[in-house]
């Protein structure tokens, strides 16, 4: 029982990441009708926003202390981050909380990147075949990836979670289930964070006038355009929003998985499977499938299950995708007439 609950929790944070990326993919697909293979690169860029922010914060001032000598007879170096010497307490607080605080930086950056990408490239591909869209965004993803690799190197760069959530939570004790269920705090935070983001995206689409127009545009952009609304502009904003969602998913994922340049591609392939399983163009489907596949994956990596079906943890997602696509042609919650020529 404990093991099952633990695997369930394990699946939630991974599922959260899948769901966030898949949500963005689906938003873009639903509004612009573009299959964006560079979405994983946006996830990765978000993660590197956090890395850059942290690097900037931890720029250090080196002071030589002549009174203390090291074993080699040279003066001791005292390193203090500039931010601490400038702001004192607040500085060290910022440094500790660099991952969550970098969200504030990431949002405008990703919004800008998303809008530039849409206006600069994607705009010209609305009416091209899906194969062309896949290919050009695939090329873009390679370019982004290589640029990041050039500046940050090929090795993963670990990021620390804030001290307060660095340890593990004794979930079992919280719910009165015994002391065996211990789980890292940050992963719980990540799950809560992704749930919040998903909820706010849905709320934005469901309860604001802007969101209503976007939803109407997803159904029939021509009619909305005839009503005198510049639907294209709103779709561009939605693309930016999708980029922000992917970026935020990346930022918060850095303490779980040290970011490297190809993390985007790794997640993209899985997220695409998630989108297709959920049903192209269905937002709830994407979220549902994201969490479902995340949880299934973590269950498949249990030793008990692996001993019955060796290797199942490696292929479970793809296996589920194959089965679902063959039995339910439109995925779990796909609408009729989407992506069916």
């Amino acid at each position: 029982m404990d093991a099952i609950l633990l695997q369930f929790l394990n699946g939630l944070d991974k599922g959260g990441a899948y769901a966030l990326i898949a949500l963005g993919l689906t938003l873009v697909f639903g509004t612009l009708g573009v299959v964006n293979f560079a979405h994983g690169a946006l996830f990765m860029l978000g993660a590197f926003c956090a890395v850059t922010f942290n690097k900037l914060l931890s720029l250090e001032q080196v002071v030589l202390d002549e009174t203390k000598k090291t074993a080699w007879g040279t003066a001791t170096e005292i390193r203090t981050p500039y931010i601490e010497s400038w702001f004192g307490e607040l500085g060290s607080f910022l440094l500790d909380y660099s991952v969550p605080v970098s969200i504030l930086v990431t949002i405008p950056v990703m919004l800008l990147i998303g809008i530039v990408m849409e206006r600069g490239l994607i705009k010209h591909f609305y009416n091209r075949p899906h194969a062309d869209q896949i290919l050009v965004t695939f090329g873009l993803a390679i370019v982004i990836q290589e640029i990041i690799k050039h500046y940050f190197g090929a090795n993963p760069i670990p990021q620390a979670a804030p001290d307060i959530v660095d340890g593990s939570a004794n979930i079992g004790a919280l719910f009165g289930l015994g002391d065996n269920i211990v789980y890292p705090w940050w992963r719980l935070v990540y799950f809560g964070f992704s749930a919040t983001i998903i909820a706010s995206v849905f709320a934005f689409l469901q309860f604001t006038t802007y969101g209503m127009v976007v939803r109407a545009g997803m159904r029939d952009s021509e009619t909305v355009g005839m009503l005198g609304i510049n639907i294209q502009k709103r779709f561009t904003v939605v693309f930016g929003l999708a980029a922000v969602v992917a970026g935020l998913a990346g930022v918060m994922y850095t303490p779980i998985l040290p970011p490297d340049y190809h993390m985007g591609m790794d997640f993209l392939v899985l997220s695409f499977v998630v989108v297709v399983v959920g049903g192209m163009g269905s937002l709830p489907g994407a979220v549902l499938a994201g969490f479902m596949l995340g949880i299934l994956q973590s269950f498949a990596s249990m030793t008990e299950i692996k001993s019955i079906f060796p290797g199942i943890d490696q292929i479970i997602i793809y296996l589920v995708a194959v089965v679902i696509l063959l039995t339910m042609p439109r995925g779990l919650m796909g609408r009729e007439g989407v992506m069916e020529e």
Partner: peptide, 9 residues
């Protein structure tokens, strides 16, 4: 399946 579904499969 055809289209993108085929690609994903």
């Amino acid at each position: 399946r055809s289209g993108i579904y085929f690609s994903i499969l």
